Simulated assay, not measured.
Amino acid sequence: MRSIVSCVMLYVAAVPTMVWAELPTLGRLFYTPQERQILNQGKALGALPVAPEPQVLAIWIDGYVNRTSSRSTLWLNGRAVPFGVQYGQVTAIGVDPTNNQVRLHWYGQLLQGKPGQQINAVAIP
């Protein structure tokens, strides 16, 4: 009984090895030498133009303070940013008093959000 089990185990272990030995060699990145040569010629000619990566804006509006005697302040991502001053690529424009929304300018887009909100926008500069 043990000899039958041993023979079966030996056969099961040997079959994948025999099948693997019959496979053609894989080569670099699974390409044939001719395909690799074509790829290398393409690299020598120069890369194709690639579209610019879209920039993603994810910014938290933490809050704002409206002052009558001095410049009002907005908190973006935990930093104090005076209105009218550029923070990275974002410029704080002001607050709409009717709906309590903060207005931001980013790459030609007007973004609005309330304190406590996260604004997500995508732009291709």
Score class of each variant (00 low, 15 high):
residue 1 M to A: 07
residue 2 R to S: 13
residue 3 S to K: 11
residue 3 S to C: 09
residue 4 I to M: 13
residue 5 V to A: 11
residue 6 S to C: 08
residue 8 V to D: 06
residue 9 M to N: 12
residue 9 M to P: 02
residue 9 M to L: 13
residue 10 L to N: 09
residue 12 V to T: 13
residue 14 A to W: 15
residue 14 A to E: 15
residue 17 T to S: 11
residue 17 T to Q: 11
residue 17 T to D: 11
residue 17 T to R: 12
residue 18 M to C: 10
residue 19 V to C: 12
residue 20 W to C: 12
residue 21 A to M: 09
residue 21 A to T: 07
residue 22 E to Y: 14
residue 23 L to D: 14
residue 23 L to A: 15
residue 25 T to S: 13
residue 26 L to T: 15
residue 28 R to Q: 10
residue 28 R to S: 06
residue 28 R to L: 05
residue 29 L to C: 09
residue 29 L to A: 05
residue 30 F to R: 13
residue 30 F to I: 13
residue 31 Y to M: 14
residue 33 P to W: 08
residue 34 Q to H: 05
residue 34 Q to N: 05
residue 36 R to Q: 04
residue 36 R to F: 07
residue 36 R to K: 12
residue 37 Q to G: 10
residue 38 I to E: 13
residue 38 I to W: 04
residue 38 I to C: 09
residue 38 I to A: 09
residue 40 N to D: 06
residue 41 Q to F: 15
residue 41 Q to E: 10
residue 42 G to Y: 04
residue 44 A to P: 07
residue 44 A to D: 14
residue 46 G to K: 09
residue 47 A to K: 14
residue 49 P to Q: 03
residue 49 P to E: 01
residue 50 V to C: 02
residue 50 V to G: 01
residue 51 A to G: 08
residue 51 A to V: 06
residue 52 P to T: 05
residue 52 P to V: 04
residue 53 E to N: 15
residue 55 Q to S: 13
residue 56 V to A: 12
residue 56 V to M: 09
residue 58 A to Y: 09
residue 61 I to E: 00
residue 62 D to L: 04
residue 64 Y to V: 01
residue 64 Y to K: 04
residue 64 Y to A: 06
residue 69 S to W: 09
residue 70 S to Q: 10
residue 70 S to P: 06
residue 71 R to G: 10
residue 71 R to Q: 06
residue 74 L to D: 00
residue 74 L to N: 01
residue 75 W to A: 02
residue 75 W to P: 00
residue 76 L to H: 02
residue 76 L to M: 06
residue 78 G to C: 02
residue 78 G to Q: 02
residue 78 G to W: 00
residue 79 R to I: 11
residue 79 R to L: 11
residue 81 V to L: 06
residue 81 V to N: 01
residue 83 F to D: 02
residue 84 G to T: 06
residue 86 Q to Y: 04
residue 87 Y to R: 02
residue 87 Y to T: 01
residue 88 G to K: 04
residue 89 Q to R: 08
residue 91 T to L: 04
residue 91 T to Q: 01
residue 94 G to R: 02
residue 94 G to D: 03
residue 95 V to I: 11
residue 95 V to A: 00
residue 95 V to K: 02
residue 96 D to M: 04
residue 96 D to W: 02
residue 99 N to V: 03
residue 101 Q to S: 08
residue 103 R to C: 10
residue 105 H to P: 07
residue 108 G to H: 14
residue 109 Q to H: 08
residue 113 G to V: 05
residue 113 G to R: 08
residue 113 G to T: 14
residue 113 G to E: 04
residue 115 P to E: 02
residue 116 G to K: 05
residue 117 Q to I: 08
residue 118 Q to G: 01
residue 119 I to F: 00
residue 119 I to T: 05
residue 119 I to A: 01
residue 119 I to M: 01
residue 120 N to V: 13
residue 122 V to R: 09
residue 123 A to G: 03
residue 123 A to T: 11
residue 124 I to Q: 03
residue 125 P to E: 06
